[in-house]
Amino acid sequence: MRETKNLTCISCPLGCQLEVVVEDGKIVQIANYSCIRGKEYAEKEVLSPKRTITSILPVAGGDVPMVSVKTSEPIPKAKIGDCMRLLKDLKIVAPIEIGDVILANICDTGSDIVATKRVKRL
């Protein structure tokens, strides 16, 4: 299967419109990049796109009602939906420190959900 993907390089403000041709899961051609960073970006973005996800969770017994969290490492883009669904059911209790692991190895990504805010116990 041959497929052409269009993406915007975000490695600098120029935002080159890259064209990547993929055949059977392999990149066969990258066009329209103006520098090597664009080529590297296209490779990563097409073969294994990853994102850091941030969200909030309700906290019981804290000085604020919600705590913000993030994935400790970027996770595969395809797993974002699953991760968000898992987060919906988490219930946590104060106190919480920045960096506390709230859920380890979420969706088998090797990345943990960690707190990004300090919540004191009331």
Binding site: T52, T54, S55, I56, S68, K70, I98, T116, K117
Partner: peptide, 19 residues
């Protein structure tokens, strides 16, 4: 601003706003 992308210049790492 709970998203990340802060601090690359000052702390040389990517932090969220609260961090």
């Amino acid at each position: 601003c709970i998203h990340n992308g802060f601090g690359l210049h000052v702390f040389k790492e990517e932090l969220t706003g609260p961090e």
